[in-house]
Simulated assay, not measured.
Amino acid sequence: MRILIVEDDNSMLEVICTALRNDSYQIDACSTGDEGLLYASNAVYDLIILDIMLPGADGLTIVKHIRKRGFDTPILLLTAKDAIEDRVRGLDSGADDYLTKPFAISELLARVRALIRRKAGMQSEGLLKYGPISIRSDVHDGYVNEQPLKLAGKEYDLLELFLRNPKRILTKDQIFDSIWGFESDSAPSVIDVYVHHLRKKLANYNCQGYIETIRGVGYMMKGNE
């Protein structure tokens, strides 16, 4: 699981990063809103933890940007204790939860786990779907119009990543980091092999065109919804 943290209090940022890394999450962190916008726009995350008051773009601007682009990444806002109006506006803008400062790290970790479980629960209920293509996490397989694709492990992971990010260009680095991880002995060229296998299985239902090659960059899930 990969998490982005945007927090301008360096001491708090360090504490949050340490706690999440100790819980085995991969972390990207920054301290300005402009950096946060860049990270959120160019990488794939399972969760974003976002302070509202930031130098540069504020947290609410980042939330609106993420939702406007169609990303459904869970967002946890960090807010000042008396900023009720900001919390309301944040939730109305598309944030999923908020935590008021000061907070206990144990509560932060509990909120993180709850948001990730909620997202996983939505996916397992069959809500992760694009056009005729869907996945079911309970049986770890993909489907086209309810017909099973019989996916192998990484094929399933690849299709899940595409379905979580429809109409979004995913670079090969993003795909590799999300599925194989930084410490993998495999080379990024393995992505092309698995995309080929996945397309072959989708071709049985004339759906191979849903995975579009962005030459020199990566791939994108695109087609008629």
Results as ranks from 00 to 15, higher is better:
187 A>W: 12
54 L>E: 09
173 D>A: 13
94 G>L: 00
205 Y>E: 08
164 R>Y: 08
66 I>H: 04
146 E>L: 14
20 L>W: 00
178 S>L: 05
80 A>T: 00
101 K>Y: 09
60 L>D: 06
106 S>H: 08
18 T>F: 13
91 L>M: 11
85 E>Y: 01
49 I>D: 03
120 A>F: 01
118 R>F: 11
222 K>N: 13
114 A>G: 09
57 A>N: 07
86 D>S: 12
184 S>A: 14
119 K>P: 02
133 I>F: 07
151 L>V: 02
68 K>R: 13
138 D>I: 13
41 S>T: 12
56 G>P: 04
188 P>F: 00
78 L>N: 04
52 I>G: 05
78 L>V: 04
105 I>W: 04
75 I>Y: 08
44 V>M: 06
75 I>F: 00
101 K>S: 00
51 D>Y: 06
15 V>S: 11
219 Y>L: 00
156 Y>P: 03
141 D>L: 00
97 D>G: 12
69 R>Q: 12
52 I>L: 07
213 T>A: 15
79 T>V: 07
116 I>F: 04
149 L>R: 01
179 I>L: 05
12 M>C: 01
206 N>S: 15
145 N>L: 07
56 G>L: 07
171 T>F: 03
110 A>Q: 03
203 A>Y: 04
42 N>A: 13
19 A>I: 02
76 L>P: 06
55 P>G: 09
64 K>E: 08
58 D>S: 09
192 D>R: 09
29 A>H: 09
106 S>K: 08
188 P>E: 06
86 D>H: 14
78 L>I: 10
48 I>W: 02
196 H>A: 15
29 A>S: 11
159 L>Y: 05
182 F>E: 15
171 T>D: 05
211 I>Y: 13
199 R>C: 09
116 I>L: 10
172 K>L: 13
66 I>E: 04
70 G>D: 02
35 E>L: 07
223 G>N: 01
128 L>F: 00
219 Y>N: 02
24 S>C: 12
71 F>V: 13
185 D>R: 12
39 Y>G: 01
164 R>N: 12
61 T>P: 07
54 L>P: 05
66 I>D: 00
170 L>D: 00
143 Y>C: 08
48 I>E: 03
197 H>N: 15
17 C>F: 01
123 Q>N: 10
175 I>R: 06
74 P>T: 00
101 K>D: 00
120 A>H: 14
4 L>I: 02
72 D>L: 11
187 A>Q: 13
118 R>W: 09
165 N>K: 11
68 K>N: 12
134 S>M: 10
140 H>F: 14
35 E>Y: 10
96 D>M: 05
198 L>Q: 06
192 D>P: 07
136 R>P: 03
128 L>N: 05
177 D>M: 15
101 K>T: 03
214 I>H: 08
90 G>L: 10
182 F>A: 15
73 T>H: 07
213 T>P: 00
52 I>S: 02
207 C>A: 14
121 G>V: 08
163 L>C: 01
35 E>T: 12
213 T>L: 13
205 Y>W: 04
183 E>S: 15
66 I>N: 05
60 L>A: 02
219 Y>S: 08
61 T>Y: 12
40 A>S: 00
203 A>G: 14
12 M>S: 10
66 I>Y: 04
110 A>N: 08
153 G>K: 14
184 S>Q: 11
124 S>N: 10
160 E>Y: 03
218 G>T: 05
